[in-house]
Simulated assay, not measured.
Amino acid sequence: MSGINKVVLVGHLGKDPEFRQLENQIAVVSFPLATSEIVNINGVREEQTEWHNVVMWRGLAEVAVKYLSKGKLIYLEGKLRTRQFEDKMGVKKYTTEVLAENFTLLGRSSDFTSERASAEKE
């Protein structure tokens, strides 16, 4: 039996998606996503926020850069990927990212109407 690598997150974008196009015109975006939960620490309710590095490729990246922006609430599904790289000093480093496979915008419809109206005017 093989393992399962599945991530489901609901959170807010920490900044606008960063769009890049690689050599073969392959689109990729990345952005931080914040998820929060309320925990009870010594009888005091506190909000704890976890930050996730999200990466989207190809067509999903093109849709994301068009509709996502800082502060938007989204639901996303994907999987974890850890990759290795060397920093400027040549030191090996590792980073774990959420490789998104799909997403859905969440929130009130009024959150999107002003954007659609301004996009249609352009």
Rank of each mutant, 00 (worst) to 15 (best):
S109G: 00
R108F: 04
S2V: 12
S118V: 01
V29M: 06
I26N: 08
H12D: 00
E115T: 08
F85P: 09
M1L: 15
V39H: 08
A119N: 10
V39I: 11
F85M: 13
E86Q: 13
S114N: 02
R83Y: 13
H12Y: 00
Q48P: 00
I38R: 15
I74V: 15
K93S: 04
E18G: 10
S110A: 02
E37D: 07
K79T: 02
L22I: 03
T113I: 04
G11H: 10
V29F: 05
G90V: 05
D16S: 00
L13G: 05
I4V: 14
R83G: 06
N5W: 03
E77F: 01
F31Y: 12
G43T: 11
W51I: 09
G71M: 08
L13N: 03
T82C: 12
W51R: 12
M89D: 10
R45V: 03
R116V: 09
S109E: 04
K92N: 09
S109N: 01
Q84T: 15
G11S: 08
L68E: 05
I74S: 09
H52D: 07
F112T: 04
N102L: 12
V7Q: 00
E97W: 13
L9V: 08
L13C: 04
E62Y: 01
Q48K: 10
S109K: 00
A34E: 03
R116F: 05
V63K: 14
M1N: 13
M1T: 15
K66S: 14
Y75G: 10
S110V: 00
G71R: 07
A61K: 03
R20Y: 03
G71F: 03
N5S: 03
Q84F: 10
E50S: 13
Y94F: 15
K6Y: 07
N102D: 14
F19L: 12
T104E: 06
K88N: 14
T82K: 14
E115W: 11
V65S: 10
K66P: 05
P17S: 09
A61H: 07
Q48S: 01
H12E: 01
V55D: 10
G107A: 09
E37T: 07
K70G: 02
G11I: 08
V8A: 04
R116Q: 08
K92L: 10
H52V: 10
I26D: 12
Y75W: 13
R20Q: 12
S2M: 10
D16P: 00
E97D: 14
F31Q: 07
S109A: 02
Q48Y: 01
L9W: 09
T104D: 06
T113E: 06
S110N: 01
L33N: 08
V44M: 14
L9N: 05
S2F: 15
G43R: 12
R83H: 13
Y94Q: 14
